[in-house]
Design a protein around this nucleic acid. Structure first.
Lengths: 170, 170
DNA sequence: GTCTATAGTTTGATAGAC
DNA sequence: GTCTATCAAACTATAGAC
């Protein structure tokens, strides 16, 4: 609270005038950070390109959002790690639902014979994990500077997914 | 420290007799938790099956480890989220290096024309994200009870990867 | 609405007896 | 090696003046 007060150039008491307690302040901050990201993806879905291009656009947007706003990503990750059932429901229903459904729809189009829910989760997990594990991945042999360029990450993820969807299961 | 003392049925002072401070105690706990997992994967690499089967075995082991020991996974995830450069190097070099290298070798065998480092990261990210996001995923439409069964998760991840590796890039 | 001052807890860590 | 007792600092939150 002291650090926050310093950052916003107010006293701790002034903050407590606007928020009843620390937990509420935290929750409202999380909600604000989440909701401000929604519109980034809107133009991907509204665009008139092919399903494959839409997937590429979604992955690229997701990677960009995470790289450009690491604090937002950490906040979200910590929230999911905590895994409080009530908050998870709030988060899923109130914030991410529409995005996830649009992604499932796209998954059903690209890979009709697979489970759309699992495919959607794979897309998100794949795109996120790259940025997330970057600080660790840098320390493994075989790491190259281009591995932290958004375009390269997004291209690799998209290619891996598209290739998988194209494959005819023998 | 008081909670820990209660859990191990000792006084706080007794703990401080064995560890110089809280940070060292924490770090040694992390290291211990990590190292105790190493052997789980050994038998996968030592087995005499095909590359594809080895990938399946690795993914299955990873999913199992994460599901069976969520505390370990949370600990690791929190550590990576913190992203302290010194600790990341320690973790990568001292604990995960050999596993990552074996996985890169397998990736080179299965997908020779792709970047082994990125493929290895994809395998881990894909397998981990499923278990990680489970509390959130449950709240989306399209969720089924089988989505939390280790076999189902591992099979989906493995199939997605194998399909992608098989695809001939046009 | 904002401040200073401070109450009431909890925390990490230590002293000293046994 | 373990305990009880305790310290000093940091924490969340509030009181009351302006």
């Amino acid at each position: 609270m002291r650090q926050l007060a310093l950052a916003v150039d107010l006293s701790v008491a002034a903050i407590y005038h606007h928020f009843p307690d620390k937990k509420t302040l935290y929750l409202e901050s999380v909600r604000f950070a989440f909701s401000s990201k929604e519109e980034v993806f809107a133009q991907v879905w509204e665009s008139n390109c092919s399903a494959e291009e839409k997937l590429g656009g979604f992955v690229r947007s997701l990677v960009d959002v995470i790289i450009q706003d690491r604090d937002f990503h950490s906040l979200m990750q910590r929230e999911i790690l905590e895994a409080d059932p009530e908050r998870m429901q709030l988060l899923a229903q109130g914030v991410f639902k529409s995005q996830f459904c649009l992604l499932m729809q796209l998954a059903a189009e690209l890979a009709p014979e697979q489970d759309a829910h699992m495919v959607a989760a794979s897309v998100i997990g794949l795109a996120k994990s790259y940025v997330e594990y970057q600080p660790l991945l840098k320390n493994f042999p075989g790491w190259k500077p281009e591995h932290e360029i958004p375009e390269v990450i997004a291209a690799h993820v998209t290619k891996l997914l598209i290739n998988s969807f194209k494959a005819k299961t023998a």
